[in-house]
Amino acid sequence: MLLIAGGARDPHVRRALRRAEARGIPARGLLVGPEDHPRLRLSVPEGRLVVDDEPLDVGALWVRHDVFAALADPRAAVAQRALDWYEALVGYAALNPRLRALNRDGLGRRVNKIAALGLAASLGLRVPRTLVTSDLAALRAGPVADAVAKPLRGGALCLPLAEALAEQDPRRAAAPSPAFVQERLAGPELRVTLVGERVFSFAIETEALDHRAEPDAPARRVADPPPAVLGPLFALARALGVELSAADFKRDPESGELVLLELNTQPMFTAYDTACGGAIVDAILDLLAR
């Protein structure tokens, strides 16, 4: 049986459960949300899992850290609860090393975006010229027109550097937090989702600097990047321990070369899955069911 665990509000797990049901793949959800608090018992070190008094015979596991509950309810306890459930399921996978677990080698690991950019560059991928800085005074003194800024860990959109500086008190020489300052690249953004050995590439049609500013921007399936990019990209995914991931690229405005913005190890993909007729979810289920 396939166990799909995550947030009750996470459309990715719900979509996968419905698709598994339609395909006749034995699957069970372990969904946690405001009204869903399953009764879990995990024996340590045996690794036996019982949910709502039902001993589960799990052959494959897909667990997603739930971020949707905290978006709907910003109380710290909600985020803590999501992390506790993720922790329990990651532990379950660790106690059962022969269990097929999606992204097993990446479970419980937080990806440092600075380190990931360094790793990507060492593997041969072009990454943006990047400075991590909190030095507002130096940034104001330099050219800002062709630069963008984005946070180190998420929590804000990527902005033109001038706009990010304008958010700060002009009397301040130092920012509260360091952030990425990068060269401005050319769109459209290319989203490349990796599922096992399969590749799903989409162009995101938007003029927005950060496509998340325009949630309805259409995604169009396009040709995959060339092997010179895909090879190092797969190597990066392997190094981060993930079989399911999604990379974001833009292009060097002069050379047209693809430039990796980041590799997401728990990607959002329902819009892209819709754009390719459900092929991404099917590929995930194929990976887990094989």
């Binding site: 946070p151 804000a156 990527c158 949630p215």
Partner: peptide, 9 residues
């Protein structure tokens, strides 16, 4: 989802 924090904190 959209996020609304400040880039430099």
């Amino acid at each position: 989802p959209k996020k609304a924090g400040k880039v430099f904190g």
